[in-house]
């Protein structure tokens, strides 16, 4: 049985990793707003349970097992956050409530809520903020595909042409009047309609 505080810790460490920060006792303590002493103890416990790996001088990193939980909880947190603010809850309470609810919703419920709120914001929760749609890249810039949120047929077609998650793409140029994008991927050049290109999310390089 995973306790709420375990989940809370893994989420915080995942969040730090997403921002590119090392997870040390100090940074985790700051992230969770708790005393460094209790953090040290908890990190030890989590390492023993193989959620974390401890490297001297580099702090802790998530094991695959730990990463899965951390990512899931963070995703749930963001889904709940979006959901609560859509429901009209005051901003001050959204974060706090999301922090509580994230531990209690099932994957199915999270999926259902996500489907509902997704239509209002194309950027799915659980995806780092540094991710932008392909249309956000300037000509000549590169990005790594993080995910594609298009319909089944379109995503399959894009994947078939080499646009799979983790692939590097370069925007060669975009046509004027909001036209399509010319992109370079896996050594070939493709033209992609703007609507579809806006559903391809990349991490800018």
């Amino acid at each position: 049985m995973i306790t709420e505080s375990t989940e809370e810790y893994l989420e915080a460490i995942y969040r730090l990793g997403e921002r590119g920060e090392a997870a040390t006792t100090t940074s985790v303590a700051k992230e969770l707003k708790v005393a460094p002493a209790s953090v040290t103890q908890m990190l030890k416990k989590l390492t023993k349970r193989r959620y974390l790996k401890y490297t001297p001088y580099h702090g802790v990193t998530l094991t695959p097992k730990g990463e899965k939980i951390g990512k899931e909880i963070l995703r749930k947190h963001r889904v709940m956050q979006k959901f609560l603010s859509t429901m009209g809850l005051p901003k001050s309470r959204v974060h706090k409530n999301a922090c509580e609810l994230e531990h209690h919703i099932s994957n199915d419920l999270e999926q259902a809520i996500y489907q509902k709120v997704e239509s209002e914001r194309p950027l799915p929760p659980g995806v780092p903020k540094s991710v932008t749609p392909l249309t956000g890249l300037l000509d000549g810039r590169k990005g790594i595909i993080s995910h594609i949120s298009g319909g089944r047929g379109a995503s399959q077609r894009l994947a078939d042409l080499g646009l799979t998650p983790g692939t590097e793409v370069m925007v060669v140029k975009s046509a004027i009047f909001h036209g399509p994008l010319m992109v370079c991927v896996r050594g070939t050049t493709l033209a992609i309609g703007r609507g579809l290109a806006s559903k391809i999310f990349v991490r800018a390089r």
Binding site: G153, R157, G193
Partner: peptide, 12 residues
């Protein structure tokens, strides 16, 4: 059916 946006190869 699913509307299809432009996806095409730009051959040399």
């Amino acid at each position: 059916g699913e509307p299809m946006s432009l996806i095409m190869e730009m051959p040399p």
